[in-house]
Design a protein around this nucleic acid. Structure first.
Lengths: 336, 336
DNA sequence: TTGTAGGCGTTATCAG
DNA sequence: CTGATAACGCCTACAA
């Protein structure tokens, strides 16, 4: 392994000088020496040892992408196709800026703290954080944190989110405008102050606005795995009161459509379905899924910019970005 | 930050003793001291500094999951839903064994080498490696490497793969048994000695066996993005010679079905489709997709076991696991 | 059973 | 403009 020392010896200067050149501290070194050193670095194939850097600077260029595992043990960081859409975008942007991405699942806040100190982690991405003790742990940290899809805020964290409320409203309103009145709401568990909760509020708002009474029995909280969602679709098929379903995730919507289909109901003739996210899957279902679009890669990119600006102490004009959503009309909703 | 030194001072012993206790080198320390040290570690919340360890031991517990980016710049590590299925399983198993996962995309072999030396990376996972200069670079390394879905072997790498040939054969044979003769083969680029290539060979084998002439014009090599796959489906709809399609990935199959549908063809009445992978999507298309099943989480888990056994110098009975596949019959194929 | 000392590669301080 | 030197936290001979 070529080290700074090797370079220094080869060139006939001290480590300090080499280090200065590496860090672009020009002005302190003669142009001649700089050139010579750079050549040698090239020739000998010097690569900085991040561990050593990290040790001396107690900062590491390591960014953690944290997935907080609660009880449901079988999940993991990239469980759903939507998540994975922006993790790639995050890795790319980080890399282009000289950072490294560690993926890590933590079960307890102690796990988190340990991990951070293990590596002098410089910054963190977390998704779906709620107002709980995990959040409190994050709040106690002194490193930059970017929260994605979370409705909790903290003076020294940044947030990248979505117009969830508006999305819920828009989807529901669209169904109403199409003549639907008995509209089911399907989602994973509705946790207070979460993404799903906001969409739920938007749903209620649209209902209220149209003077349609909210009926709690039309709310279906489900796991997102295929079997469950398909089963839900089959159950919905048995009822005749519902004419439309708003599902807060495309995978959920697709599962429901599939269940509906298998139970002999036709979408959208018998029942309309609208989703949320606009993942590729929307083009692959039949009928193609009408949904609320969001830009996942952009979300990832913005999250990284936020983080890097904080890491580099750049001024941060605002600590929050709410990405806009819009409706994408396809074929899963029919007017009645 | 609590360090070993702090512990040593608090207990009134030397760093060496603390270090010995931490590493379970019992026998060298009195039971009493051990207990005392452990208590103190607990009380003071000592967490090892991996950078320091890494520096002194030139090994880091960091495992890289490498995605080799060729020209197509917009892809990334978790581009397709299938990939992301086992990356979660990999993170989990690594973590349970005391390792850390770094996600990294590399464009050149130089990028790879730099990355490895930056962090003293202990081991590597790579997917879809071919016999090229990237492979040569891997071959030159001295760390354990596990190749996933790759048809290149090397004395000091392990392989976790799939019965791709058998899968291709089984799928095609199934279609043939159902009375199909004009069977299209749809896949991403067929690179020699790759996963897709093997499936292609299986396809040809089944054809030959049934005395059906292989027709190159029935082979369609495509990108896997939705638009392209849907477009392919629409094109296939225009021809009347094809009665069935074998697609080497479920997302591809689903795209084709969608295109077929949009062009007015019905699956499986007009044309049958079979996929590969058995991802959740198969339940969500309509009709539900008949496909070749593979166990992605298991693949991830096995890959990790391979890697860890190598890292810990355990005896490795065999350097290769080929996971079995099996056909899952659903509704996208019809006998004629 | 325990301690001392040197060094891993890098950076920062301070002196020349 | 350049160079010693100490320090980051940890590990491992080697001593005691």
């Amino acid at each position: 392994m070529t080290t700074i020392k090797d370079i220094a010896q080869a060139v006939g200067v001290s480590c300090t000088t080499v280090s200065n050149v590496i860090h672009g501290r020009a002005g302190r070194v003669s142009a001649e020496t700089i050139a010579h050193i750079n050549e040698t670095i090239e020739k000998l194939g010097y690569v900085p040892n991040m561990s050593a850097r990290s040790l001396v600077s107690s900062s590491s260029k390591v960014i953690g992408m944290i997935s907080h595992l609660t009880q449901n043990k079988n999940e993991s960081i990239v469980e759903d196709p939507f998540h994975s859409a922006f993790i790639g975008s995050i890795e790319k942007t980080l890399r282009e800026n000289g950072y490294y991405l560690m993926l890590r699942t933590v079960e307890t806040t102690a796990d988190l703290l340990t991990f951070l100190r293990n590596w002098n982690v410089d910054g963190l991405f977390c998704t779906g954080v709620f107002q709980d003790e995990f959040f409190d742990a994050l709040a106690g940290l002194s490193i930059p944190i970017v929260l994605i899809d979370s409705y909790v805020t903290h003076p020294n964290m940044c947030n990248v989110g979505l117009e969830d409320y508006n999305g819920g409203y828009t989807a529901t309103r669209y169904l109403i405008d199409k003549g639907h009145k008995e509209i089911a709401f399907a989602s994973p568990t509705i946790k207070k102050r979460g993404v799903v909760y906001e969409r739920f509020l938007g749903y209620q708002k649209a209902l209220t606005e149209a003077a349609i009474p909210f009926r709690p029995e039309l709310v279906f909280e489900q796991e997102l795995d295929v079997n469950t969602t398909v089963a839900l679709g089959m159950n919905l098929a048995k009822r005749n009161d519902i004419t439309a379903v708003f599902a807060t995730a495309d995978i959920l919507a697709a599962g429901i459509m599939s269940g509906l289909n298998q139970a002999g109901k036709r979408v959208p003739e018998d029942i309309s379905v609208i989703g949320f996210d606009d993942i590729n899957l929307c083009h692959l279902t039949s009928p193609r899924l009408t949904t609320i679009h969001q830009d996942a890669p952009l979300k990832g990119k913005l999250a990284v910019y936020f983080l890097i600006d904080q890491l580099e102490n750049k001024p941060i004009p605002n600590r929050e970005v709410i990405l806009p959503i819009h409706l994408v009309e396809r074929n899963s909703v029919k007017a009645r």
